[in-house]
Design a protein around this nucleic acid. Structure first.
Length: 565
RNA sequence: GCCCCUGUAGCUCAGUUGGAUAGAGCAGCGGCCUCCGGAGCCGCGUGCACCCGUUCGAGUCGGGUCAGGGGUACCA
């Protein structure tokens, strides 16, 4: 909590007899900066004192005396408003940022704790579509945020490399596959086969049964099935890595669902030993009716396992391996029932840590215009989106800054940043309408706007040409915009923490937009570098702090901050 | 049928634990310096799906209605 709030809480508690905790919960920030920096609403006191809140505020404001940190106290309606000593506030914030550099916003709260994040997790033999963007970038942002908060973070790519679908792909490949075609474009070929399988199954329903048989053989370690599966997996991974490299995203472990195959029997035995399992309609299930949940299926009638079994096994494995404080699953909301079942079974198995498993869910990406016109099935490839965005960035650079040195690198940073930001900026639980025009927009509330502001701040520092110092006249930062900027900077660490608690990277996006738009307004109105050396020195320290904070915020989202663009 | 999520301006979205006149961006129209980067800035807007309730106070909490999406035993 800020020193200023502490001070205010102290003052009020002395005068009113309310507890500090209670007051802390009530202190708020007024909607208009002109009213003050902090406010205390007097409604709660009106019952106790049997007086109108307006009257109480008036009397309270008279009794409270200004201090070193709080320079003005006044009543407006039912609120007591506080104005902090601007110079002190500026000094506290700017000196700290100067000191911490681009680690500003870090915290110790995660020290000694491990968080496991399961994210991205594409299915092999299927194209990496735009639909996989959300889990990938949200997971990566959470990784960076928790790391900043002091946690050990383990990134897990739980590849979808197991399940009945591979029986289908194997069978389809055996029937219609072509080696040469496969090597040319592995995923597209496999995906075509998969689509064709579903088309042909309508006319020959027997294929379905045959495919299940192939998955069963795979699960039993059959040589031919395993060989094909391995081949599909290797080539798919190679293509995924291309996308991960573009996004600059990595993983600490990529075991995939298949990895847990050998532990599956153990899990089932354990569940049976607890007396939780039963046979129903020829399948092995855990009945969850008394918890208002549908049964959790462990084994199909043909004895093959299901994804719930694999997720339960994986959860136990992860806890044994990492002794996590939290285990996150960044997976679409379509699977929320599935996770409720899995977590419930873990709880019934007696694992107390089941409560530390969190489904970090998110809405769908839907399509409006382009979906039907996309040639490759009904999928928009993530790689295509990234490439288009980079291409647009190139074009704009050619137009606005053709002299730029490392154009290609900057075009990548900007183009990819735009795509990441466009996704992260919307709150997780909302569905996103994928719209080319919106993703490929570099104006307004976008990554390029933030990056542009950052580049502008860098440019100012180059132009200034002298080292920025913390020995300045802090009282010189006196305009409304400077004041607002100081508060936004002060609030940044709290925002990062809150973002972690809510698993909601969008909070950082909007904070960055606030910082940038406020600065740009300031920049437009006021000259930064002038004849007035004291004022210039003060403003340059602010510029430096903003630049560093924006860079820090972007890096938490997995977005680069070029110095020129 | 039952369960979950969503419903704020023409479009896309903010609005942290209920609080002082509900905010941005995009698109449209009109402007901006002797220009520190115009990927910028400024101006133009009577909108919280609907109805009840709780409260001094509801976009925010509770109940109901309507609309959209998702899930609901052998896919993941």
């Amino acid at each position: 909590m800020s020193k200023f709030v502490e001070e205010i809480v102290g003052l009020i508690s002395k005068e009113t007899g309310l507890s500090k905790v209670e007051i802390t919960g009530l202190v708020e920030v007024p909607p208009d900066q002109k009213l003050g920096d902090y406010a205390f609403p007097c409604f709660v006191l009106s019952k106790k004192l049997k007086k109108a809140p307006n009257q109480i505020a008036g009397e309270l404001a008279l009794r409270l005396k200004a201090t070193d940190l709080i320079e003005e106290i006044s009543a407006v309606g039912p609120y007591v408003n506080f104005r902090v000593d601007r110079a002190k506030q500026a000094e506290l914030v700017l000196a700290r940022i100067f000191d911490e550099g681009d680690r500003y916003g870090s915290d110790e709260c995660g020290k000694g704790k491990t968080i496991v994040i399961d994210f991205s997790s594409p299915n092999i033999a299927k194209p990496f579509g735009i639909g996989h963007l959300r889990t990938t970038v949200i997971g990566n942002a959470l990784f960076r945020i928790f790391r900043r908060l002091g946690y050990e973070v383990v990134r897990i790519n739980h590849l979808g490399d197991w399940g009945t679908q591979f029986g289908k792909v194997i069978l389809a490949y055996k029937m219609w596959g072509d080696e040469e075609e496969f090597l040319k474009d592995p995923i597209a070929t496999l995906y075509d086969l998969y689509v064709r399988f579903h088309r042909e199954v309508d006319e020959e329903p027997g294929l379905e049964e045959e495919a299940r048989g192939w998955f069963k053989r795979l699960e039993d370690g059959d040589e031919e099935a395993t060989g094909l599966w391995k081949k599909f997996r290797d080539y798919s991974l190679r293509e995924f890595n291309r996308v991960y490299e573009m996004l600059d995203i990595g993983f600490d472990s990529c075991p995939g669902e298949s990895f847990y195959n050998e532990f599956m029997d153990q899990t089932i035995e354990q569940i049976e030993a607890k007396g939780l399992a039963e046979i129903s309609q020829d399948a092995l299930i855990v009945d969850l009716e008394q918890y208002d949940l549908p049964p959790c299926l462990l084994k199909k009638k043909d004895e093959a396992t299901l994804y719930a079994t694999r997720d339960i096994t994986a959860a136990i494995y992860r806890h044994d391996t990492y002794e996590f404080h939290k285990s996150l699953y960044v997976v679409g909301s379509a699977q929320s029932l599935h996770f409720r079942q899995v977590f419930k079974v873990l709880e019934l198995m007696g694992y107390k840590w089941a409560k530390d498993c969190v489904h970090v869910d998110f809405g769908w990406i839907k399509f409006r215009q382009e979906m039907m016109s996309t040639r490759k099935g009904n999928i928009v490839l993530l790689e295509d989106v990234l490439n288009k965005s980079i291409q647009l960035a190139r074009t704009i650079i050619e137009e606005k800054n053709p002299e730029l040195e490392n154009k290609e690198e900057v075009a990548k940073d900007v183009g990819i940043g735009a795509v990441i930001f466009a996704d992260l900026a919307t709150r997780r639980n909302k569905d996103i309408d994928f719209d080319w025009d919106q993703v490929l927009s570099f104006d307004g509330e976008t990554a390029p706007y933030v990056q542009y502001t950052h580049a502008r701040l860098c440019s100012l520092q180059r132009k200034y040409g002298r080292p920025v110092s913390i020995k300045i006249d802090y009282g010189a930062l006196s305009t409304d915009e400077e004041r607002a900027l100081l508060k936004l900077l002060e609030d940044f660490p709290r925002k990062v923490k809150f973002t972690g608690e809510a698993y909601e990277p969008a909070f950082i996006c909007s904070h960055l937009i606030d910082l940038c738009s406020t600065f740009n307004r300031f920049y437009q109105k006021q000259r930064i570098i002038t004849e007035d050396e004291d004022q210039t020195a003060a403003r340059m320290l602010l510029v430096r702090a903003l630049q560093v904070t924006i860079k820090s915020g972007l890096s938490l989202l997995g977005i680069k901050a070029p110095e020129r663009m």
